[in-house]
Design a protein around this nucleic acid. Structure first.
Lengths: 158, 158
DNA sequence: TATTGTTATACTCTATAACTATA
DNA sequence: TATAGTTATAGAGTATAACAATA
């Protein structure tokens, strides 16, 4: 036991929980011959008419330079396509192709089912509680991140 | 097509929560000039006398080939050192150097404090509930992972 | 001038397999 | 034969900055 630590060690487990979960989720995604960022793009585009690079990057937390490469690889796989924006000549819309839509509709429920195996011993109420807990956590992280970036903006001069 | 999703879309938020959290945690770790896997090694080695590659890989979910590179980079930074095992000629023990211990003792509490900013609006009971929820989730993921593949990772409780 | 997306660079992580040296 | 760790390889993501086209 780490009794020397003055901070709750359970928070170390929080980090480990996230890591373990991501590793588990990735093991399914890799069976689709996709990376986690690539699958993230697919499910973000799912059930939309297309999203431009700027918004897509904000939603997936992938910076623009990286996003160009990720989208190009998905394009090479025939899963997404670039379409010029009609309202802004600088902007490119990223859409799922028909193959991409097929993949999304086939694998997203499959992915959720894979995730659901985790919850064998959970009651429906347990799952609802977990989802509410995580949603609140997500909002709290976003709030903290906002405060952080404000501080970073203030510190940009070093 | 709107009824195509038979699974709660809230689980999509679960993925996003993990991602958002990791991104937030990474933003602090990067200020230490460390990557997330490197920091993971540091906090795993913290308050231990050293761990060999095999166990270290199991704890951090980094495969051996990758681990060699990660440890070498940390060695280049003077934060860890390799020590030959006295009982097994094949085995290398990885330890924090004095600089590594300093870093750990200075930054782990700092990291937890950074994480704690998320919980501004949480009561102590809320935090306890969240920790219990996540610990249960972690155990459930490990159980699902065990069922999924034959290569079981022996988890040591802390 | 500011913004959108691309290109270029250098680094790190990842998975995999072949390899060595011990056991 | 099996195991612990290294090396080699190819691919992918990351941050960062410079850049072109458009607003």
């Amino acid at each position: 036991m780490d009794s020397a630590l003055t901070f709750p060690t359970a928070l170390r487990e929080l980090l480990r929980t996230h890591q373990t979960f991501l590793s588990y989720a990735a093991s399914h995604v890799h069976t689709l011959d996709l990376t986690l960022p690539q699958f993230d793009i697919i499910i973000t585009l799912g059930n939309t008419a297309g999203i431009n690079f700027k918004i897509l990057g904000e939603k997936t937390l992938i910076t623009k330079g990286t996003l160009t490469g990720v989208i190009s690889r998905l394009e090479d796989k025939g899963l997404v396509q670039r379409v010029a924006s009609e309202t802004d000549g600088r902007s490119q819309i990223v859409q799922l192709t028909e193959a991409g839509k097929d993949l999304y509709q086939r694998t997203f429920p499959e992915h959720l089912a894979f995730i659901y195996r985790i919850f064998n011993d959970y009651s429906p109420e347990d799952i609802a509680t977990l989802e509410a807990t995580l949603l609140r956590l997500r909002k709290a992280v976003i709030a903290a991140r906002s405060n952080e970036s404000e501080q970073l903006v203030e510190e940009t001069d070093q």
